[in-house]
Design a protein around this nucleic acid. Structure first.
Length: 396
DNA sequence: AAATTAGTCAACCGCTTCATT
DNA sequence: CAATGAAGCGGTTGACTAATT
């Protein structure tokens, strides 16, 4: 007898997970008018934890111990099968969440530093509510923790300052938007898109490096034999293990050293360098790099081609520096503030002006103005944030 | 001291994305 | 290319605690 599946929303069948089939209750089966078939009316996916006997809610220390012991011994492997093997009355998803948000050994807990607050605010302005991407730039903080901190602290703080936490604009600025400003807004949006794309790629890079680090951690610290299902890194990119490879192919990840092989991921190509100089790896892939990546990096690292070449990896090192106060506070933060532009304009390497920079075809005049405007904007925010938390009481 | 309100954050839910077959 | 399994992600909830009335 055929079984038809009807979703509440037409056209959503593609997204339906087969879990529905095993979770759907026989009680909601209905016979169709002709009685020729059963029609299953899907009322929404049943949560995996609804299965009989599975516990929900806060974890007990005993459960934590079981989960920790199992993962240290065997790695997590398949989360779905883990609870049974570990002797836990939990669904795999719950176990994964508990591990990633609480039990993982590389998690830092406690108060956020001012540097971390700054980073969150700045990244949020660029990325929006993409917490996992933001979390990759805050070593040892989980996306969940950052999200909670944003919703309970930072958002309110910005609101009290009269800054819209969504647009990161002052309310007055939003109200008095003129033609010029809307043009700037368009530029800003444009820039944000590129930055967003770049940061997304960075996030991926950081995630990959974190995986490698975890694998390294398990191999060295746990020193266990047998299958290492946890942290198994499966990817088509040509990564090598930490501490292999040579010299300039090494990058500092948030928690470990990551090495690349010859077929470098596009993140570390010498971006911003004229095409002729790009193929130093005898690898023509670089010329096929998406233009957006090239633009994003050239606009955010330096407007001076020679500087880009000289420091082509610096921004990655800054972002991935294991020390948040150095890497994020000075590196990425200043990068976001447009410091790099300012630096390149003021150092002896190039006495460029806005127009000459724009003329070089790397940063347009409007983009330069964008940097200047937003530099001021960010400085004003950071000055306020810097004065917290002690000053915040008086301020608010 | 009890009741109420507000703040915090761990955990859940449902959707999307990715990898594999 | 579609189906499937698994994990990732962001929004939301609700239990717990602290502050206030």
């Amino acid at each position: 007898m055929p079984i038809h599946v009807r979703d509440r929303e037409k056209g959503r069948l593609q997204n339906l997970n087969r879990d529905i089939f095993c979770c759907v209750s026989p009680s909601i089966y209905q016979s169709d008018a002709k009685g020729a078939a059963f029609v299953i009316i899907i009322m929404g996916r049943s949560p995996c934890c609804d299965k009989a006997g599975l516990k929900k809610g806060p974890w007990t220390p005993e459960e934590d111990q079981k989960l920790l012991a199992y993962i240290e011994e065997h790695g997590h492997g398949s989360w779905r099968s883990l609870p049974e093997k570990a002797g836990l009355q939990r669904c795999g998803k719950s176990c994964r969440l508990r591990w990633t948000n609480y039990l993982r050994p590389d998690i830092k807990r406690g108060k956020f530093t001012v540097q971390e607050e700054q980073t969150i605010i700045q990244l949020h302005a660029l990325l929006g509510n993409r917490w996992s991407a933001i979390a990759t730039h805050l070593p040892k903080r989980t996306d969940n923790e950052i999200k909670n901190y944003w919703n309970t602290h930072l958002k309110k703080r910005l609101l009290k300052m009269g800054i819209d936490p969504v647009t990161h604009k002052h309310k007055n600025e939003t109200l008095s938007s003129s033609t010029g400003q809307s043009k700037n807004a368009a530029t800003l949006s444009h820039m944000a898109q590129w930055e967003s794309a770049r940061l997304e790629a960075e996030a991926r890079l950081a995630r990959e490096s974190k995986l490698l680090h975890l694998q390294h951690y398990q191999n060295n610290n746990l020193n266990k034999s047998g299958p290492q299902h946890c942290f198994t890194h499966k990817t088509s990119t040509n990564w090598t293990k930490p501490n292999e490879g040579s010299g300039d192919q090494q990058l500092e990840s948030p928690t470990s050293t990551v090495t690349f092989s010859e077929n470098l991921p596009l993140m570390i190509m010498p971006l911003g360098i004229p095409t002729d100089n790009r193929n130093r790896n005898n690898n023509n892939e670089s010329s096929e790099l998406p233009a957006m990546i090239e633009f994003a990096v050239s606009s955010s690292t330096s407007s001076d081609v020679s500087l880009v070449k000289e420091h082509e990896h610096d921004w990655i090192r800054q972002i991935n520096c294991p020390c948040p106060t150095e890497g994020i506070g000075e590196g990425f933060t200043s990068l976001l503030l447009g410091d790099s532009v300012g630096r390149s304009l003021s150092t002896g390497k190039g006495e460029a002006t806005a127009s000459s920079v724009a003329g070089a075809g790397v940063v347009s005049e409007s983009e330069y103005n964008y940097y200047e405007d937003n530099k001021n904007y960010w400085n004003s925010i950071l000055n306020l944030v810097d004065s917290s938390p002690s000053d915040s009481q008086a301020m608010f």
